[in-house]
Amino acid sequence: MLSPCRPQLRFISCSIILILLFQAGDTKRDLKSACSTCQQITENFNKGYDRTAKQNFGGGNTAWEERKLSKYETSEIRLMEILEDLCDSSSFECNRMVEEHEEQFETWWFKKKTKHPDLHEWFCIDTIKVCCPKGTFGPDCNGGSERPCHGNGVCDGDGTRGGNGKCSCDHAYKGEFCLDCVDGYFNQVRNDTFSLCTECDTSCKTCSGATNQDCDECKEGWEEDDQEACVDVNECAKEPSPCKEDQYCLNAEGSYSCNGCDEACTGCTGGGPDKCQACAEGYKDVEGTCTDIDECSQSEPACAKENQECVNNKGSFICICSSGYEEKDGECVQQSDEKESEALETTPEPHGEL
């Protein structure tokens, strides 16, 4: 009979595997971070070394101090001054690394510096083993290429004890080793160790050279002509037009745009009231340009009702009641005395001349 604990054990096993996977990912990130911290520490050490190059003990009889206390150049005092400025006070990882490995700095300073002048190599790579030589990665510093990803990308974990060595290619490059070109680029130079990707002509999706006759495939909006070159498609010359009735088409290289006609137009061939196919209601053609009709100036009154006034608008007009009248049931009737007096009170007095 199956034990009732089996499903629980299976769940626990899966949980442990997931935890280990997350820990493995964190370890890789930690190894990269540790190398970055160590790199910064050794760079700051070299800056401090240069900064203190011309200093001395700073008091009294320097010649006597050099004889009795050893030279400042190789002194513990100088070493301590350099170590004090390696990290910002807020950088926990940096300060912890310096504190944990202070003895190694002393060892290098007093015993190893002459034979191993590269502090980063001696400390970060060979001693505390958080970094690898450039072009290598991982716990065992695998790889060894002088140009990781052939100089066309970044190797995951390059120079650290983390990462998997996978290439993240630069723009224009692709492939496991960043030797191939993405669409829109071609290999101007290519061998087993070097690749130079150059951009195709604007008209090409893929190509073998730099001109529009070297296209293997045209981009959308371009087509092959009789000379087997990719040329622009003039979408605006097609019937029917790709644009709506109240729009005009504007061609561009490899594309087009639809733009709204002027309000004076019914259909148009371009922007402005002089490009109308026909004039909209309320407009008339005046020497090739659709111009507003002033309905209020016509011989026949536009506002036929009594006590109305006409106000012209672009392409239209409105009828309003004359001063002292108000609209009521579709007619302009005289305002009551009370409303008329209110209107007079709100009317500002004209200013006299000073």
Rank of each mutant, 00 (worst) to 15 (best):
P4F: 04
C5T: 13
S13G: 13
S13R: 11
S13Y: 08
I19T: 14
L21K: 08
Q23N: 13
Q23R: 09
G25L: 11
D26L: 15
D30V: 13
L31T: 03
K32T: 13
C35G: 02
C35Y: 01
C35D: 04
C38M: 05
Q40M: 13
T42F: 00
R51K: 14
T52P: 01
K54F: 13
F57C: 14
G59C: 15
G59T: 11
G60S: 06
L69H: 15
L69E: 07
L69W: 12
Y72K: 06
S75V: 08
S75K: 04
E76H: 03
R78F: 08
R78D: 03
L79W: 02
S89N: 10
S90C: 02
N95K: 10
R96P: 00
R96H: 06
E102P: 00
F105N: 06
F110I: 09
F110Q: 09
K112V: 10
K115N: 14
E121C: 01
C131Q: 07
K134G: 07
G135S: 12
G135F: 03
F137L: 09
N142Y: 02
P148R: 06
V154S: 11
D158V: 04
T160A: 07
G162Y: 03
G163V: 02
G165E: 02
C169G: 09
H171A: 12
Y173E: 03
K174N: 04
G175K: 04
D183S: 14
Y185I: 05
V189M: 12
V189N: 15
E199I: 14
T202P: 01
T206N: 05
A210E: 11
Q213P: 00
C215H: 04
E220Q: 10
E220P: 04
D225C: 10
D226P: 03
D226N: 09
D232Y: 01
V233Q: 01
N234H: 09
A237F: 01
K244Q: 12
C249T: 09
L250T: 13
S255M: 08
S257D: 08
C261I: 10
E263K: 07
A264F: 00
G272T: 04
D274K: 00
Q277K: 15
A278N: 12
A280P: 01
K284V: 13
K284N: 06
T289G: 01
S297I: 11
S297R: 11
S299K: 11
E306I: 07
C310P: 08
N312F: 02
K314I: 11
K314V: 13
I318F: 00
C319S: 03
I320Q: 10
C321H: 03
D329V: 00
V333E: 12
Q335Y: 00
S336L: 07
E338Q: 14
L344F: 05
T347N: 05
P350S: 05
E353A: 07
L354H: 12
